[in-house]
Every structure is written in structure tokens, then in C-alpha cells.
Design a protein around this nucleic acid. Structure first.
Length: 677
DNA sequence: GCAAGGTC
């Protein structure tokens, strides 16, 4: 008897879909490692199988590392597990008589389903149906199955294909151009890269770096003051915040230091602070940076581990929604079985109505990040921290509004001098109780300042200051910038930032762009300014929308991209030497310290130089020609680096050359017996 | 060895 085949995006989704459609009669088996769910719907046999995200991707239709390449094909990704799953799905598809794509209802999901149905299942995409759903709830999945579209959503599929192909054409070709130009200039091999998302991100960092460099610090003076009212100390702010001469500030300090004033006026404002929304990935990454100092990629890795151990829900989500169907009451109850969360869970459940605060962002396939109620037996310290942050944030969304009282007093010392004193009290702690220790506001006991209270100025200090340059980005701030600009996706942003570090384009926690980063952006801007612009992404998105709505043809869009890129690469090839020299020069600076001190004069550094006469590269001392004439010939190809060892014969440094898979080492002393053969 | 996007 034949059956229907339903393709899903990932294992967890396949399981949800299988149980939603099959009720209790689901039989689970493994075929070549692939989970297969067998069930019946109205007497018809059905097999539900998962993919692992993309199983197919674009690759060049030729071999080698030449450029530019425009001829691409879709092929299985080079991953053993994925290849096994493709084989397994292909065999199961042979026995099927109808097909349904039940991947996430977005561009990438539609493409994942399409490539599998087309390339693994023998072109059955043309007779497949498409389930459309926005959450993986039972009701919605059943209705999505019943009302499935009678064909694949090809418009969305084509938009996805174009996204992949265009990114490859821009990214891989430009990266190869950079690497190749540097290699030919004698700079050896180093991984360099450029792309639609990473290059505009790096450009934004460069612009900030330039602003910082252009900043001229102006001196100014300010007062740092403290006042005691009713026995409590408060910082006080003088009515003038910036003085432009030290004398002015000193005069005020002299008039006020140690003096008694009185509270002339008090302004009280009450603010209602609703609970924060539940986490999506970006929120979690920013919050974990704020409270633990974790980088976004670290937080993501930890959250993914917690997801794999079933402690938290799917972390790669942009949703800030917690639909009732998640069984929120049950989750709270399960968490409440542990000592740690007992009290909070009890108080939330006591209220009766379990309704969380939600945020505005949604996600086509997942709810906000939340605990599942399962507690993993073992968690590392880091996992425990992130887990606790997620649990307490989840609890907080069920809390009442917090009420903050802000009191602002005007304190007068004499007729000329007055200060502002601010105090903030938590009147109703509401949700903040659940979110401790991650929120600092506390209820304050004791008296509050009132009109006519005495105020003693225990400190009025003059401070020398300078106007500050704009702040550097941190990875956390950079993620927020990328989100605002629509650069990358929730799943890729952290990884792309990591990549910029790995390439040596940026460094430091407060991100600084290196000379190499500047050189790459400079070259891109000269030859292909669009690639450093955030508009590149919006333009591609515009094209994708037009393809999705059927107004434009996918092939035409890719051809247009090829047409705009061809002259760009021609220009690059014309200026190959210039580009190569520039990268080579910068690389050399970076490698200066890597090669180590000069073994002859001991004060300079070894570096790679290129002879003006012969065009060949060699190792020379950077004290040449003034104090030192050390030199040593090296192979013209390959990456040069200092090895950890010194020569056994003469003690000179050993240099390593890596060219593809070949590695060889030699001593940099031309007169050393190890070099005589 | 190169992009950006999905997923373990």
C-alpha cells in the first residue's frame, strides 16, 4: 500500500507535526539514522520525515579556485549525516504517491522543502502540496494540512534560490579576488573575505573608528557633589553641568563646600513599568552580555546546548510571544518542583490567570525562548547561568507592573547656587521580584526628602574632564545595529561577528578595526562601493519581494547581478597589482611581530619584503638599510610563519612555509650547516 | 580556503 510523504525542516518540527496529525497512533522508526514517523490520516498511510535545515546548497559548476565564477549548481551539502539523510529520504520517497512540504513557512523553509523534493525525490516537487502555518500548534497544523496549497509556493522558493546564488556570486568571488591579489603580490596565503552582510558591518565599524580618530577632546570642568538629607547621602547635580573655565567651577565649590542648604521644591513622578517581554535570541544575547558579559556567540552556543538537552525551547527565534497553547501553567508548575523556583511559581499560579506580557516581534515558526519545565540533570556553570536568566525572565513576564517613584528635589545653598537631587524608589516591586538578581531596583526603607529639609553639602569637588569621543561598538551593540539595519538573521549575526575577529579585521571587546580591516573595506569601497553599503541587503530584499509576488523572474535577477559584477571584476583585475600590494603591505605589518626579532642586529624585526628589481619576495630586517642588512631567500609561494623551535646547529629562528598541504621548515641563517646540501 | 542561510 502506498503512502504520502511529508517533509519537515528539522527533527523537532517533524515530531510535532507527526503527533499533531496522527494523534496517538504514531510509529517511530529510524532508517539510516533518519527518524521516520508513520501514521494514518483518515485511513491513508503517511510518512513524516525531517530535514536538517538545508540539505542542498549552491556550489560552482567547475573545479578549482579561479575567479570570477558565475556558473553555479545546486548539490548536496558536504556533510556525512546530511548525505545519509538524503539517501534515506530518496528511498522512502520511491514508495510514496503524494508529497507535502511542511517546512517552516518562510523563504528558506520553502527552499529546503523544494530542493529535497526536486533533487532527492526525483522531481516530485511539481506535484507536491504546501502546508502553511505560523506556529507548531496542533490545531494550526491540522488546519494547515487540511487546507494545504495544491502546489509548492514556487515564488518563495525562487526568491530563496536567488538569495543563495547572489550571496555566493558576490561573496565568494570578491573573497577570492582579495586572496588572489595578495598571493600574487607575494603576500602568501591568508583567508580574506567579503560579503553582503559582513562587509557593511565592517564598514559601520570603520566609520565609527574614523569618528573616534577625528574627535578632538575639549577640556571642561564639572562638579562632583554629594549632599546629606535626613541622614541619607545623595549625589547632587549643580545647575550648570559644564564649566568652560576651572575658575568658575572653583568659585562655586568654594561657595558650597560644607555648607547647609535646604530643599526648596520636590517633584514626585510615579512611573508604571510593565514586565519585560520574553526573550527572543537578540534580547537574550544583549541581556546575557549586560549581566554576565557573555559575547553573543557564546550565549547562542549555550542556549543551543540547553535546547538540545530539552531544558529550553528553540533559541533561534525572533518571537516575543508566549501562546497559551504552550501549556504555560504546566511549565510553571514543573519548575516550581525545585527548591529554587518554588516560591516564584507558587505566587504566579496563585493569581489564577496565567497570562504573560508579550512583545511585538513574531516569528514564522517558533514562540519566544522559554523553559520547557524539564530540568537537565547536569549543567555547566555557564549553562546554569543562562538557564536561570531564561527562567526568571519567563517568570517576570507573568508579574504585575512595577511602580517606580522618581523624586527630584531642588536644593538651594544660597541665592546663586542650586543643585538637583534625584532619588528613585520602587514603590510596587511587581515583576522585579521574579527577575532578581538581574534587575537592581529595590524598595528603599526609611524617610524621603521633603520641602524645607536641611541639606548638607559634604562634598563639592571640581573635576577636570574632556569631551568624549563616540563609544566603540561591543559585539552586543553591534548585534543591535545589525538588527536595526536588517543585516543578517537572528541565527547568523553572532557568527558573522566572530568571523570578522577570525579574519583579523577587528579586535578587542570594545571593537577596534585593524589595519587589515581598513584595507579590505577601502579596497571594496573603491571597486565595489555597493558591497559595503547596507543598501545591498535592502536591494536584494526588494528583488526577493518582487519575485515572491510574481512580478519578476528569478533568472533575470541573477543575470542582472552577473552583469553588474562582470565589470567590477574587470576593474579589479586591471588593478590587481595595486590591490595586492596594499594588502601585502598591511599583512606584513601584522606579521611583523609574528616572524620575530632579527637574529643579526637583534633590535629590528624580520619581515617579508619584495625586491624592486626582481619582484621576488625574501625575508629582510626592518632596520635595513640603516643599521642592518640581514636577508634570507624564501619560496615565492605559501604562507610564511615563525615556528616555535630554534635551529639545533646555530640557534637561529626556524621559519615555516605552508603551501596547501605541504609544510617545510628551514633555519634563517644562510651560513648554517643545516642549509648546506 | 571564500558567502549567508538553515540545522545538529
Amino acid at each position: 500500500m502506498s503512502y504520502q510523504l511529508i517533509i519537515c525542516e528539522k527533527p523537532s518540527a517533524a515530531m510535532r507535526i507527526a503527533y499533531a496529525l496522527g494523534g496517538t497512533h504514531v510509529r517511530r522508526e529510524r532508517y539510516k539514522g533518519l527518524p521516520v514517523f508513520w501514521l494514518e490520516i483518515e485511513g491513508k498511510r503517511v510518512a513524516v520525515v525531517p530535514a536538517l535545515g538545508h540539505l542542498y546548497g549552491v556550489e560552482q559548476n567547475s573545479t578549482g579556485w579561479s575567479f570570477p565564477i558565475f556558473d553555479l549548481r545546486w548539490a548536496p551539502l558536504k556533510d556525512r549525516r546530511k548525505r545519509m539523510w538524503i539517501e534515506a529520504i530518496a528511498e522512502i520517497a520511491k514508495g510514496a504517491d503524494s508529497y507535502v512540504c511542511a517546512c517552516d513557512f518562510d523563504v528558506e523553509g520553502s527552499l529546503i522543502g523544494y530542493t529535497i523534493l526536486r533533487y532527492a525525490c526525483g522531481g516530485v516537487d511539481i506535484k507536491a502540496k504546501r502546508m502553511r502555518f505560523s506556529t507548531l500548534t496542533k490545531e494550526e497544523l491540522r488546519s494547515a494540512y487540511k487546507n494545504a496549497l495544491g502546489r509548492l509556493d514556487y515564488e518563495r522558493v525562487y526568491a530563496g534560490k536567488v538569495r543563495h546564488e547572489v550571496d555566493w556570486i558576490f561573496g565568494v568571488n570578491t573573497s577570492r579576488a582579495l586572496m588572489d591579489a595578495m598571493g600574487r603580490a607575494g603576500g602568501g596565503f591568508e583567508v580574506l573575505s567579503a560579503g553582503r552582510v559582513q562587509s557593511p558591518t565592517l564598514y559601520a565599524l570603520c566609520r565609527r573608528e574614523v569618528e573616534i580618530n577625528l574627535h578632538v577632546p575639549d577640556p571642561f570642568w564639572s562638579l562632583n557633589s554629594e549632599v546629606v538629607i535626613k541622614g541619607a547621602k545623595y549625589p547632587a547635580e549643580y545647575k550648570v553641568k559644564e564649566f568652560f573655565s576651572r575658575k568658575e567651577a572653583e568659585d562655586v565649590a568654594e561657595r558650597c563646600q560644607g555648607k547647609r542648604g535646604y530643599v526648596k521644591d520636590v517633584l514626585v513622578k510615579r512611573k508604571r513599568i510593565p514586565p519585560p517581554p520574553p526573550f527572543n535570541l537578540g534580547d537574550l544575547q544583549r541581556e546575557a552580555y549586560r549581566v554576565f558579559g557573555y559575547s553573543p556567540s557564546k550565549t547562542q552556543r549555550i542556549a543551543e546546548r540547553l535546547y538540545l538537552s530539552a531544558a529550553v525551547s528553540y533559541p533561534r527565534t525572533s518571537s516575543q510571544k508566549l501562546p497559551h497553547s504552550l501549556g504555560l501553567g504546566r511549565i510553571i508548575e514543573k519548575l516550581g518542583r525545585t527548591e529554587r523556583y518554588r516560591e516564584a511559581a507558587r505566587r504566579i499560579l496563585e493569581k489564577g490567570i496565567v497570562k504573560p506580557r508579550e512583545g511585538r516581534s513574531t516569528d514564522p515558526a517558533h514562540p519566544a525562548i522559554h523553559p520547557t519545565g524539564t530540568l537537565p540533570k547536569r549543567m555547566s556553570g555557564e549553562e546554569g547561568r543562562i538557564f536561570d536568566l531564561i527562567v526568571r525572565r519567563f517568570f517576570a513576564t507573568f508579574g504585575e507592573d512595577a511602580i517606580l517613584e522618581e523624586r527630584e528635589a531642588v536644593v538651594e545653598v544660597n541665592e546663586r547656587d542650586s543643585f538637583k537631587v534625584r532619588a528613585r524608589d520602587l514603590v510596587e516591586s511587581g515583576w522585579t521580584e521574579y527577575y532578581r538578581p538581574y534587575v537592581a531596583w529595590r524598595k528603599t526603607e526609611g524617610q524621603r526628602f521633603e520641602v524645607n529639609d536641611e541639606a548638607i553639602f559634604v562634598r563639592v569637588d571640581v573635576e577636570d574632564k574632556f569631551t568624549a569621543p563616540p563609544e566603540r561598538y561591543t559585539a552586543s551593540k553591534l548585534i543591535a545595529y545589525m538588527e536595526r539595519q536588517g543585516l543578517g538573521t537572528k541565527s547568523t549575526r553572532a557568527e558573522i561577528i566572530d568571523n570578522l575577529y577570525r579574519r583579523g579585521y577587528i579586535e578587542g571587546r570594545e571593537i577596534k578595526v585593524t589595519d587589515l580591516g581598513f584595507a579590505v573595506v577601502g579596497i571594496l569601497k573603491r571597486f565595489f562601493p555597493e558591497l559595503v553599503s547596507v543598501k545591498m541587503t535592502s536591494a536584494l530584499e526588494g528583488d526577493m519581494v518582487e519575485i515572491e509576488s510574481g512580478r519578476r523572474d528569478q533568472v533575470e535577477v541573477v543575470l542582472k547581478v552577473v552583469d553588474t559584477m562582470k565589470p567590477v571584476f574587470e576593474r579589479i583585475i586591471e588593478k590587481y597589482e595595486e590591490i595586492g600590494e596594499e594588502l601585502f603591505g598591511v599583512m606584513n605589518q601584522l606579521r611583523r611581530n609574528e616572524l620575530g626579532p632579527c637574529p643579526k642586529c637583534r633590535s629590528g624585526h624580520m619581515r617579508i619584503v619584495r625586491s624592486k628589481k626582481s619582484g621576488k619576495r625574501f625575508i629582510g630586517c626592518d632596520n635595513y638599510p640603516n643599521f642592518c642588512n640581514f636577508s634570507f631567500p624564501i619560496p615565492q609561494r605559501g604562507k610564511i610563519s615563525r615556528s616555535n623551535a630554534d635551529c639545533n646547529f646555530c640557534g637561529f629562528p626556524i621559519i615555516e612555509v605552508k603551501d596547501g598541504w605541504k609544510i617545510w621548515r628551514f633555519c634563517v641563517n644562510a651560513g648554517c650547516p643545516s642549509n648546506k646540501r
